[in-house]
Design a protein around this nucleic acid. Structure first.
Length: 614
RNA sequence: GGCUCCGUAGCUUAACUGGAUAGAGCACCUGACUACGGAUCAGGAGGUUGCAGGUUCGAAUCCUGCCGGAGUCACCA
């Protein structure tokens, strides 16, 4: 049982015996004591002024005396206004740190027997990954790590959007303009190679569209359909999709490819497989660079027809209804949503239909208690609808669905738009942060005696930690602004700052002669810097559970930074190896080791590795 | 226009779910070890938490109304 729980029980007993007031531990307001005051835990006593009919200060003193008598771990207390600050005994902390020192799994919970699916990344196969995918991947990956540490069995899922008109555009452009070129023949990374043909298609299409706008037909349509308040430019921008579908030669050819794909035409399927294969090779390289992997891949080409039986089930249960034209709908207006189409009048599936089908399929495949979808917040409405539908269908997994919705990534120069070429490419970004780490590393020459290969590993490690920490430290829900300059910062509130704390500890330990860990039992009086560290370590397991419950890696990131900062200060203020007494030296070595373990575990939850040297 | 989310120092952000003097980093200024790794530490300056009310012992946090921004409202995905 944690001390705080013991204290809260004590408070409950205290108010009862002192004032005859019945409450429960969950009702007691408490905090970690703020830095400016002496103490570890603070009980807020304002809530008891009414029942006790006394001044907050008096209640604080009476309750403090009561707890002092009841709980051995409480060494002393002080009262400021309505705040009762409790000081936990040094003996307690020293014992605790020794326990953690011997515990190889500190912070990680044993299995809770539950299974959770985490879907993240979900790329399209017509272009390379970009900054938005990186945020998605990092959130998905750290959620996986955190849930695992909290005791869940986690299945990492990626759904690959490998079919549809977009990839057909790339295929068409490749057929028309590539002259048989391949990633191998050009030395290009597969996903970038295919992406170039997608861009090329868009470019050719734009030219075709521009020319058409000047044609008799185009001028006629403009005159016919333009609204008075529109400029010609605005009109044509809005008309683009319709042009693509009705008049464009390139559009017709791309749609013809899609039709042939759906009909199973062997040549088309072969080309589609080949181009997607190139893309997958490229993606794999990016995933490997980021250090992430998946357990199970779902391909849209294999799942896009799913969901029809769910529609039937909904109709049978009167959750859905069929209109005269044959289309199927659900009325969600009483849930604050709209009337939503589930099936087209021609009987084909929609986005929600597919998602209903894949959710069901995943449940059949894995039988999970929870399913997490890591998807950007522009799809909030879609997931509200999806989850509401699943609930109304009475599916057994309806209660375990969660949309881990994250804000879009803005650039300091504005929003990312693929059409305007303002997308930050994932591979470019990774290369850039590593190049920057290399530059800094050269100036420092700390790793000069390592092999070139070891040095390169460390440099990659540092660059990636800068990038990963920069992104994961921001609360997922928050729209974030990405500043390329800051993302490669290696000083201050950054990944490398935390790595540096770890590397320092490892270095000190390497320099330490063998020491008896038991000697720290004699250590009687912790200084404030040591208490900061001890308190942080103590809160770590609870923090992981909280992060898992809230699906929020940023709390872990901020914890790691705060712990590293406390260590740097401790290190600066106190000598470890030249401590005054053997007991102090022993305790500080044990404490430092514990801090290094917590930092390593914490950063691992964010997908960041800790180097021995840097 | 309806619905949802957001607004904290010049910039990027935190605040344990209503608690004490709103905490960091970057940038700017000033300092620190002939010691265990200076990718460090300390100090200074920088805030009416978008605005106005309300709820109470107590509000960045909850409620109401404005202002500003984003997303979304397809038989697209």
């Amino acid at each position: 049982m944690k001390v705080i729980d013991v204290i809260l029980d004590g408070v409950v007993n205290g108010v009862k015996s002192l004032y005859g007031f019945e409450t429960e531990p969950g009702q007691v307001t408490w905090n970690l004591t703020r830095k400016d005051f002496e103490g570890d835990y603070t009980i807020v006593v304002f809530p008891y002024t009414k029942v006790a009919r006394k001044k907050p200060e008096d209640i604080g003193r009476e309750l403090g005396d009561f707890l002092l008598g009841e709980i051995p771990a409480v060494a002393r207390f002080n009262v400021v206004n309505g705040f009762l600050n409790l000081v936990i005994s040094d003996r307690f902390w020293v014992d605790f740190i020794q326990e953690v020192y011997a515990d190889d799994h500190f912070g990680r919970q044993p299995s809770n027997g539950k299974k959770v699916l985490v879907e993240f990344c979900s790329p399209n196969t017509n272009k390379p990954l970009h900054l938005g995918h990186i945020r998605n991947i990092l959130l998905g990956w750290s959620s996986y790590k955190i849930l695992q540490a909290a005791g869940y069995e986690v299945v990492r899922i990626q759904i690959i959007n490998d079919r549809g008109i977009a990839i057909c555009k790339s295929m068409l452009a490749w057929q028309k303009y590539a002259g048989g070129a391949t990633p191998g023949s050009t030395g290009k990374k597969g996903d970038h190679f295919v992406g170039e043909y997608y861009v090329l298609f868009e470019k050719q299409f734009q030219e075709e569209y521009k020319a058409w706008q000047q044609s008799e037909k185009g001028i006629g349509i403009l005159a016919d359909k333009k609204k008075p308040e529109q400029t010609a430019e605005e009109f044509f921008k809005a008309y683009k999709n319709q042009y693509f579908n009705e008049f464009s030669a390139l559009g017709a050819q791309a749609k013809d490819l899609l039709r042939r794909w759906e009909a199973g035409d062997p040549d088309t399927i072969a080309l589609w497989k080949q181009m997607n294969g190139w893309v997958y090779e490229g993606f794999e390289q990016t995933y490997a660079a980021l250090g992430v992997a998946f357990d199970k891949l779902y391909y849209e080409s294999e799942t896009y027809l799913l969901g029809k039986d769910m529609v039937q089930k909904g109709l049978d249960a009167n959750v859905f209804y069929r209109k005269e034209d044959g289309s199927v709908w659900a009325d969600l207006e009483d849930a604050g949503l709209d009337k939503k189409a589930i099936l087209r009048s021609d009987g084909t599936s929609l986005y929600v239909t597919q998602d209903l089908g894949t959710a069901h399929q995943r449940y059949l495949d894995h039988g999970a208690d929870k399913m997490i979808y890591v998807v950007a917040d522009e799809q909030n409405y879609h997931f509200q609808v999806l989850f509401e539908l699943i609930k109304r269908l009475g599916e057994p997994y309806a209660g375990g669905l969660f949309h881990l919705s994250y804000g879009m990534v803005d650039l300091t120069t504005g929003k990312m738009k693929s059409r305007e070429g303002t997308v930050v490419d994932a591979d470019d970004l990774i290369a850039e942060v590593i190049a920057d780490a290399r530059e800094s590393s050269r100036e420092r020459e700390r790793t000069a005696n390592l092999t070139a290969e070891e040095q390169e590993d460390i440099i990659r490690n540092i660059g990636l930690s800068a990038l990963k920490f920069y992104i994961t430290k921001v609360h997922p829900k928050k729209r974030m602004t990405f500043d390329p300059k800051e993302s490669v910062d290696l000083q201050g509130q950054t990944g490398p700052y935390i790595q540096n704390a770890f590397v320092r500890i490892r270095s000190v330990i390497r320099n330490a002669p063998a020491f008896p860990a038991d000697a720290c039992r004699e250590y009687a009086e912790l200084n404030p810097e040591e208490k900061d560290l001890v308190n942080a370590v103590y809160s770590f397991p609870g923090l992981i559970l909280e992060a898992a419950e809230n699906y929020d890696p940023s709390t872990i990131a901020n914890f790691c930074y705060s712990l590293a900062k406390s260590f740097h200060k401790f290190y600066h203020d106190h000598s470890i190896l030249n401590a005054d007494t053997e007991a102090a030296k022993s305790f500080r070595l044990v404490l430092s080791t514990v801090v290094s373990k917590v930092l390593k575990t914490g950063m691992d939850l964010l997908g960041i590795d800790m180097p021995e040297y840097m």
